[in-house]
Each structure stands twice: as structure tokens, then as C-alpha cells.
Design a protein around this nucleic acid. Structure first.
Lengths: 194, 194
DNA sequence: GTTTTTGAACTGACCAGTCAGTCTTAAAAG
DNA sequence: CTTTTAAGACTGACTGGTCAGTTCAAAAAC
């Protein structure tokens, strides 16, 4: 990667970060391109040099963010027996949310919204993330390691949702509480199920 | 109630309904007052005759919607022993979400957003709803009916969140599946915990 | 020499909020 | 019962401002 590419990557990264924070706080429509450029400390022209439109910037952002999450999920469960794999998923999710708090908040806000231009994108990405969880749970059921009356589909979305809500709730309403604490409580809850 | 009052109540109700649907689909900022007026079949001026501003309309909407939810929660747990009370809460929440699907979707999208004018309002209302759940769980722990290593605060927000996410996910992505099905699966999951 | 960034000016669509005027309803006056 | 009055409810064209997206010449980085 030469200097030019690196510089450009860096600009795009700064734009992603600025956009994700602002959109998490205010939502997509309330966030202006001028705001994003200002926070990323670039000129407005640079935004449009790097992205086709505000919407395109947001879509790439979604793809990028959920890609990272799915990677983390896959890495977390690799070679683990089902029960531990589920716990590992929770941990990976919390870890991810801690690192990318703004993105998590944004996901929570946009994931179940209909009628927006990027809804299609988001649906695919959601399937990717929840699908990974569902695979793990299914493997556990098949191996007889998890109860076979478990509704895999509901369990997967419940797992995904409970992590997201509890973690974001913690970030927004009691940010001083150490994450280990929240993680322990949540794992305690989930362990009773699996 | 005379004809005038009835007429006005009716207009306000129609505005609430139009607003809640549009905001659930598109978000607050992306929803225009013209849209709301159009869907409610009134003139734009009528919106401002009945509400001080777009934000005020939304705030009253939130108060109204969460008020109903809290009422349902309180009614559901009345005189029930702790374990059954928790199950009753889940049922009440699902029932509520089925009836006011758009409002639930809206809540899920806006509840954890920061930096918006109505955030204060929302925080209070959230405390009201989750607080009711926390009371019930706490009563269960005190009575020795629920395990005393349960983190009440986390458990309450987890309960609230899991219901919201699972139900909205169901409404958005598999609306044909009967609710009893979802309710059974969810109760199955939660029963393992409590 | 080429790519990337800058910054400021500009356009046109869109949108929250306003207001002078119209319609509706209840009740008072005849 | 019919007409008048007045407040209440509603209307929609209009205004002032905002914002996505464009343009471009000049500068900086490589």
C-alpha cells in the first residue's frame, strides 16, 4: 500500500468515525454532511471525492461495521464445543460493543426500521450476524448439548437482541459501571438457559 | 363530552396514529409534518393548531404510548406470585406490541438515542416501564422465589429488551408466524432463567 | 506529473412554522 | 322554531431558512 492509498484510507476512516458517532447520536436524517466533514476535519468536497453520496457513505459504513462483527463472531466460536461457544458469542458481542459503541447504538436504532433506502443492505447484514449465532445454537441442539425443544430462530434473535439492548443500555444509562460486571450478570442469565 | 371536544379528540387521535406509523417507518427527522397531515387527512395548519410543534407532538405521543404500556404491566402483575408475575409481564409486553406494533418499533429505534430534545422525556418514561419490571423481579428475589445472585437491574433491562427485540423482529421479518408461537418460545427461554 | 484535498460559492428542493381567512357548532336572542 | 353571534376548529398558501449535492481553481501531498 503506497502513501497515497494510505492517506486516502485514513481520510475514509476518519469520515466513517465521524459519521458513525453523529448518526448514532442524532440519526441519519438529522446528521448533515457539513457536520460530518467538520467533525472529521476535512473539507466538504473531500466527502464527495471519497463517497458518491451521503447514503453511499452510510451503506459502506454498515457493511464495514457488520463485517467486523461477523468476523469476531466466527473467530470466537472456532473449534469450541457448543455450550462454551454460546458464552463466547456473548463475550465477543459485548467486547465488540465496547469497542464500537457508537456503531452498536446506530445498529440498534436502524436495524428494525422499514422503508429506508438501505433497508435491503441492513437485512442482509442482519441475516449474516444472526445467522452465525443460529448456526452455533443449531450445532448445539444437533449435538444434544442444548435442549432440543429450543426454538433456534427465536433463541438466536433473542441472544443477539439481549446483548445489544443490555450493552447499549449500560453504555447510555450507567457508563461508569465496569463492563466485566455487566458481562458477568448477562452470562449468568444466559447460562441458565443453555 | 360535546361535539367540539369529540371532534378535536378525534383529530388528535388521527394525528397520533399517522405520526406513530410514519416515525416507526422512517424515524423522527425523516418524517415531515406535511406527511403526517396528509396521512391523517387534515391540513398542515391543524397539526399546529393541536400541537405546539413537531417535537411536542412526538413527546405527547411517547407519554401516551408508554403510559398505556406501564398500565398494562401493572395490571398484569397485580396479586400474582413472583414467578408467574414475570411470565405475565412477558405476555403483557407481547400483547401490547402486537396491538401497538408501530409504537413498539418506534420505541426500539428511539429509546437509546442520545442528544435529542426529547431524550429527557424518554429517560423518565423508560424508568417507569423498566422500573415496573425491576420491582417485580426484586419482589421475587426478596421472597426467595428467584435466585438471589440475580442482578435485578440487568435482568429487568434484559427482560424488557428481549421482549422488544424478539417481538419486533418477528413483526418485521416473519409477520406470518402466529404470535402464540413466538410467545411460547420466548416464555420457554425465560422460564429457564426464573 | 498525478492524485488527493481544500474551501468557498452556488443551486434548487424541501421543510418547519405562520397567519389571515373559512367553516362548524353550540348557545343566546328573538 | 328560526336567526344571530361568537368562540372553536380547521385550512392552505406563504416565508425564511436549511441542506444535499455541484463546481472549480488552487494548493498540498506523493
Amino acid at each position: 500500500m503506497d502513501g497515497r492509498t494510505r492517506r486516502r484510507e485514513d481520510t475514509r476512516q476518519r469520515l466513517f468515525e465521524a459519521a458513525v458517532e453523529l448518526i448514532a447520536e442524532q440519526g441519519f436524517s438529522a446528521t448533515t454532511v457539513d457536520d460530518i466533514a467538520l467533525r472529521a476535519k476535512v473539507a466538504k468536497g473531500t466527502v464527495y471525492y471519497n463517497f458518491a453520496s451521503k447514503t453511499a457513505l452510510f451503506e459502506e459504513l454498515l457493511r464495514h461495521g457488520i463485517g467486523l462483527l461477523t468476523d469476531d463472531f466466527r473467530a470466537a466460536v472456532r473449534d469450541l464445543p457448543p455450550r462454551e461457544a454460546v458464552a463466547a458469542l456473548i463475550r465477543a458481542q459485548l467486547e465488540y460493543i465496547r469497542r464500537y459503541r457508537a456503531f452498536a447504538q446506530l445498529l440498534l436504532s436502524e436495524m428494525w426500521r422499514t422503508n429506508r433506502e438501505w433497508q435491503q443492505t441492513l437485512m442482509l447484514l442482519r441475516e449474516q450476524a444472526i445467522g452465525t449465532i443460529a448456526e452455533t445454537v443449531q450445532a448445539g441442539v444437533d449435538a444434544g448439548d442444548l435442549p432440543d425443544d429450543l426454538d433456534v430462530r427465536v433463541a438466536a434473535s433473542a441472544l443477539f437482541g439481549v446483548g445489544l439492548v443490555v450493552a447499549v443500555d449500560w453504555l447510555v444509562f450507567q457508563p461508569d459501571r465496569p463492563i466485566e460486571d455487566v458481562e458477568r450478570s448477562l452470562l449468568g442469565l444466559v447460562r441458565r438457559v443453555v
